[in-house]
Amino acid sequence: MDRTRIVRWLRVLFPLAALAILSVLFLLSRKPDPDAGVPYAEGGIEDLARHPGMTAPQFSTVTADGTTVTLTADRATPGEEGTAASNLALDWTTREGTAARLTAAVADQQGAQVTLQGDVDMTLSTGWHLTAPRIEADTAEGRLAAPHEVAVTAPFGTLTAGGMVLTRAAEGAQVLELNRGVHLIYRP
Score class of each variant (00 low, 15 high):
residue 1 M to G: 07
residue 2 D to V: 08
residue 2 D to Q: 05
residue 3 R to P: 03
residue 4 T to W: 07
residue 6 I to K: 01
residue 6 I to D: 05
residue 7 V to S: 00
residue 11 R to A: 08
residue 16 L to D: 02
residue 16 L to R: 00
residue 18 A to V: 13
residue 19 L to H: 02
residue 19 L to F: 07
residue 21 I to K: 00
residue 22 L to F: 13
residue 22 L to H: 00
residue 24 V to D: 01
residue 27 L to T: 06
residue 31 K to D: 15
residue 31 K to M: 08
residue 34 P to N: 02
residue 36 A to S: 14
residue 39 P to T: 15
residue 41 A to C: 00
residue 41 A to I: 11
residue 44 G to W: 11
residue 46 E to S: 11
residue 48 L to M: 07
residue 49 A to R: 14
residue 50 R to P: 00
residue 55 T to S: 08
residue 56 A to R: 04
residue 60 S to P: 00
residue 61 T to N: 01
residue 62 V to T: 15
residue 63 T to I: 07
residue 64 A to G: 03
residue 65 D to Y: 03
residue 67 T to F: 09
residue 68 T to G: 02
residue 69 V to C: 08
residue 70 T to F: 01
residue 70 T to R: 14
residue 73 A to F: 01
residue 74 D to Q: 10
residue 81 E to Q: 15
residue 83 T to H: 04
residue 84 A to H: 12
residue 86 S to Y: 13
residue 87 N to H: 11
residue 88 L to S: 11
residue 88 L to D: 05
residue 89 A to E: 15
residue 89 A to M: 08
residue 91 D to C: 02
residue 92 W to K: 02
residue 93 T to A: 10
residue 94 T to P: 14
residue 97 G to S: 06
residue 102 L to W: 07
residue 103 T to F: 04
residue 104 A to Q: 01
residue 111 G to Y: 08
residue 111 G to R: 05
residue 112 A to H: 07
residue 113 Q to V: 14
residue 113 Q to T: 15
residue 116 L to H: 02
residue 116 L to E: 05
residue 117 Q to Y: 01
residue 118 G to P: 14
residue 118 G to C: 07
residue 120 V to G: 05
residue 123 T to A: 10
residue 124 L to E: 10
residue 128 W to M: 09
residue 128 W to V: 05
residue 130 L to Q: 01
residue 131 T to D: 09
residue 131 T to H: 01
residue 132 A to E: 01
residue 132 A to M: 03
residue 133 P to K: 04
residue 134 R to T: 15
residue 135 I to E: 07
residue 135 I to Q: 02
residue 136 E to Q: 03
residue 136 E to R: 02
residue 138 D to N: 15
residue 138 D to R: 09
residue 139 T to P: 12
residue 142 G to M: 04
residue 144 L to S: 06
residue 146 A to P: 14
residue 148 H to E: 15
residue 149 E to W: 03
residue 149 E to T: 13
residue 150 V to L: 07
residue 156 F to P: 00
residue 159 L to C: 09
residue 161 A to P: 07
residue 164 M to E: 06
residue 168 R to D: 04
residue 168 R to I: 08
residue 168 R to M: 12
residue 169 A to M: 04
residue 169 A to I: 06
residue 169 A to R: 08
residue 170 A to G: 01
residue 171 E to K: 10
residue 171 E to C: 02
residue 172 G to A: 08
residue 176 L to T: 11
residue 177 E to F: 05
residue 178 L to K: 04
residue 179 N to S: 13
residue 181 G to C: 08
residue 183 H to W: 01
residue 184 L to Q: 04
residue 186 Y to A: 05
